[in-house]
C-alpha cells in the first residue's frame, strides 16, 4: 500500500512567478518522459519481475518518482499562483489557463494530455529494464533542456536535483540488469522470458 509523507524530498521555493517556465516544466509532470509516466511504468513493471531485488528496486524507484511528481507539481503551482493578468495573457500560457486556470494538469508541453502510450510494460525483465534505462536518460535530457531554458536560480536548483536523481536511477537499473543477466543460462542470454517459460514439450 502507499503511505504519504507530508514533506518534499527536496524543497521547492520559487519566489518569482514565471508562466513561460510553467508551460515547459509541465512536461515533466505529465509529458512523455515525465514523472507521472516514470512512476506508473516502474510500479506496473514490478508485477512481472522474476527476482525479489527487482520488485524492491522498481517499487522504491516508482515511489520516489511519485515524490518527484509532487515536486514538479509544486513548481508549476509556485510558478503560476501569483501571476498578473498580463502574464496570464502571455501567448504560451493562455491556452493552458483557458482549460485549467491555475490548476496543475498532467499534459505534454505541446498540450496533449498524458497517455500511457508514452511508456511500455512488456513483461520481460530484460526488455523492461532497457525501457527503464532509456526512460531515465530521457528524463535526464529533458531536465537538462529545462535547465538551459531557465534563468531563475530557485527553479534551476530544483531541476538540477531532479536531474541528479535520474542519473542515480539509471545506475541502479543498470546494476539490476547486470543482476538479471548473471542469473540467465548462458545459452539463453538474450532470449527467453523467465515468466513464461515452461516445459512445453511435455504437453
Amino acid at each position: 500500500m502507499f503511505v504519504y509523507e507530508k514533506e518534499l524530498q527536496y524543497p521547492v521555493r520559487i519566489r518569482k512567478p514565471d508562466q513561460r517556465m510553467a508551460s515547459v516544466i509541465i512536461s515533466q509532470y505529465g509529458g512523455p518522459d515525465g514523472e507521472l509516466g516514470a512512476s506508473l511504468r516502474y510500479l506496473s513493471q514490478r508485477y512481472s519481475m522474476p527476482c525479489n531485488e527487482l520488485k524492491g528496486l522498481l517499487t522504491d524507484i516508482g515511489t520516489e518518482e511519485l515524490g518527484h511528481l509532487e515536486m514538479v507539481g509544486s513548481m508549476i503551482h509556485q510558478l503560476t499562483r501569483d501571476l498578473t493578468d498580463c502574464q496570464i495573457q502571455d501567448s504560451a500560457f493562455a491556452p493552458y489557463f483557458t482549460d485549467h486556470a491555475l490548476g496543475v494538469y498532467p499534459q505534454f508541453a505541446s498540450g496533449q494530455p498524458y497517455h500511457a502510450a508514452a511508456m511500455a510494460v512488456k513483461g520481460d525483465p530484460i526488455t523492461d529494464l532497457h525501457e527503464d534505462l532509456a526512460a531515465e536518460q530521457k528524463a535526464r535530457t529533458t531536465y537538462e533542456n529545462l535547465i538551459l531554458l531557465a534563468d531563475d536560480p530557485d527553479v534551476i536548483d530544483v531541476l538540477r536535483f531532479l536531474r541528479a536523481r535520474e542519473i542515480v536511477h539509471y545506475q541502479r537499473f543498470a546494476e539490476a540488469l547486470a543482476m538479471v543477466q548473471d542469473r540467465l543460462n548462458e545459452k539463453n542470454f538474450y532470449a527467453f522470458n523467465p515468466m513464461l517459460q515452461c516445459d512445453c514439450k511435455n504437453k
Binding site: 509523507e5 514533506e7 524530498q9 527536496y10 524543497p11 521555493r13 531485488e53 524492491g56 528496486l57 522504491d60 524507484i61 520516489e64 536548483d157 542515480v168 536511477h169 541502479r172 546494476e175 539490476a176 543482476m179
Partner: peptide, 24 residues
Amino acid sequence: ACTSQCQVDKFALWELRLYLNTHP
C-alpha cells in the same frame, strides 16, 4: 537550499536503500 536535519537524514537513508536493493 534550506533543509531540515530530518529531511537530510531521510534522503541519505533513502539513497542507501536504493543502493542496498542491488547490493543486498
